[in-house]
Design a protein around this nucleic acid. Structure first.
Lengths: 350, 350
DNA sequence: ATGAAAGCGCTAACAT
DNA sequence: ATGTTAGCGCTTTCAT
């Protein structure tokens, strides 16, 4: 049934199909691409012949002709973050429907890797890209990005001249602080991401600001920023739990930090929320298996992904129609507090 | 500082660089690609001019010439599975080093989507692909795959003529059963994936076989297969816990089922392992935050990913050297029991 | 060491 | 409605 469908050189081309039918190759092209002035029978004959010969259109040749490929880049630091997986999922679906291919680029937060990836995307004439930029984007990277439709997602970097879709982490953390303050807590700790990440800086700011506006001073002693690893969350929580003057509540600044924190709390057999109130960040399903259920700062995952993608698609459209660029607005979504059973009224020194 | 670096038509080409230097465009090509017979000074001049003009090689044109692109496809049902994320991570790293781009294709276990993705990969002359095949691969999909280097990962499908790297789920489940039987358990339940998935079928087989070889009959009453969702794990666990004759132990057949199960156990306040022994599947970090720590069937994640990638790369190499195909062996890795504190000696009726 | 020229597979004028 | 032709940007002979 049909030819061998060889890849590479020697593959069957429209010329082969044309020859087999005794027509010109442009007729084949037209038929295959559903052009207007082509007789239905011819269209059918061509279609049939093409599939019988195992013809597969050469996207490269088409790209060369049309000067733009149907690739969309997704440049992310890792592949396990909640926001990233949501983005992959939604973007993959959208790409499939719109006949784009999704090129996944993992930077591991290495600026050089980021540059190499963006370079390759430019080389393959990617239509656009969505990026969670590394902390220290190279000037060259920013310059390359300037030449294509780009959306910054989750994080943003000043050097990149592209709209962003982010989550208002400051508000999220502030809401958590306020909730705890209302419950009477004063010694509230925050374990978060480093200032090098735009997300880390914003969340820490939110923490400080909320503390101040709640009339709680001496923020810094309870503010811990470090690598966003499970390990750091665990170690810092352990340290805090064993401190001479432990906090009565801890807020986490990322899902991994929360995970490490919960592991530490279980090991230390801390009674939550009796001895310690806890608020996590993000809402992975496993927060529900901890006993008690962990209150947390929820993020509108697919919503933010959708927003970013729409922004990118609008830029792509604008470019296709030769419209003026630079009008795309940035967006900052509000997170929301998900209250479960891990916070309680402050009941005196632990 | 350099030109605008326009994308699409009007971008600067080697001809522009050549013109600017008053040399021929083939000289530019040679210089840029580091060919042998080219003077060092010329190489330098060209390099400098290229970067000053903002030249970016057109990968499409190169592909057209060389009849193969530097794309590797990863075709997966979803993007959250432990094995899949491990694969993405490892493959992304390998691709970056070897100058490939990783095209992520998410099928959602829909055979039609799978076909469309594989078709697009063929069209863009992808060098090869790694796939976690859908349960019901279309003949057309299998045929397209026959034309390129392919490795099946985690699952395998009979219609696809390509080596596979899988995990011996039957062994994993059997080991879990044996462990529980040694602890005196007789009423052992298994909650797993459906038979439509090769993984689901194998694991269920392993369960039945181990039960029989441990002299425990009446398997079917305690064998529950269904959608691998958190919800199914939760509902089935709930049902089992409340049954007239509940099991004294439960084994889960996927990480999501485990997650749902643990949620149910927490809700029902079942004492693990006193009232119920539990063994999970896979080893996501959150198994450590449940109290007690959950014993589980551990998988060699990166190892299996590496193996699959190596197999693919070997096929690609072989093809490049015109070697005979079809000699690549399949591999089945052994999972291992990770013992924590969720299993205990059977102590009579609950 | 460099230049000239051909051609990869396709699409899109421009003919007819 | 179909055929002819040119050319996208690149690599690669074949000359020189």
């Amino acid at each position: 049934m049909g030819g061998e469908g060889q890849a590479g050189r020697g593959a069957v081309t429209i010329k082969d199909v044309a020859a087999a039918l005794g027509v010109s190759h442009s007729t084949v092209s037209r038929a295959l691409n559903g052009h207007s002035h082509i007789s239905p029978e011819m269209k059918d004959k061509v279609r049939r012949a093409a599939r019988e010969l195992g013809y597969v259109v050469n996207a490269g040749a088409r790209t060369l002709r049309q000067a733009s490929s149907r690739l969309i880049g997704l440049v992310v630091p890792n592949v396990t973050n909640e926001l990233v997986t949501a983005m992959m999922k939604v973007l993959a679906a959208r790409c499939e429907r719109a006949n784009y291919q999704l090129v996944l680029c993992v930077t591991q937060d290495d600026a050089e890797a980021e540059l190499r990836h963006v370079e390759m995307l430019r080389q393959s004439r990617a239509t656009g890209l969505i990026t969670v930029p590394t902390p220290f984007v190279l000037p060259e990277t920013a310059r390359m990005m300037a030449a294509m439709p780009v959306v910054q997602f989750s994080r943003r970097h000043a050097a990149i001249d592209a709209p962003s879709v982010t989550i208002d982490g400051a508000q999220g953390i502030a809401a958590a602080v306020r909730h705890l303050a209302e419950l009477g807590h004063r010694r509230i700790a925050y374990i978060g991401l480093p200032d090098s990440l735009s997300t880390g800086a914003a969340r820490a700011d939110g923490f400080r600001g909320a503390l101040a506006s709640c009339g709680i001073g001496d923020a810094d002693a309870l503010l811990h920023q470090g690598q966003g690893s499970i390990e750091f969350g665990r170690a810092t929580t352990m340290m805090l739990a064993r401190a001479a003057a432990p906090p009565s509540a801890i807020i986490y600044g990322s899902a991994d930090l929360t995970l490490g924190g919960l592991e530490a709390l279980r090991r230390e057999s801390l009674a939550v929320p009796r001895d310690l109130s806890v608020i996590g960040f993000g809402d992975p399903h496993w927060l529900r298996i901890y006993d008690p259920g962990i209150s947390t700062i929820g993020l509108a995952l697919s919503e933010s992904a959708e927003a970013a993608i729409s922004s990118l698609l609008r830029q792509i459209d604008a470019r296709a129609h030769g419209a003026a660029p630079g009008t795309e607005p940035s967006l900052e979504l509000e997170p929301f507090l998900v209250l479960r059973d891990s916070t309680a009224r402050f009941r005196g020194a632990a």
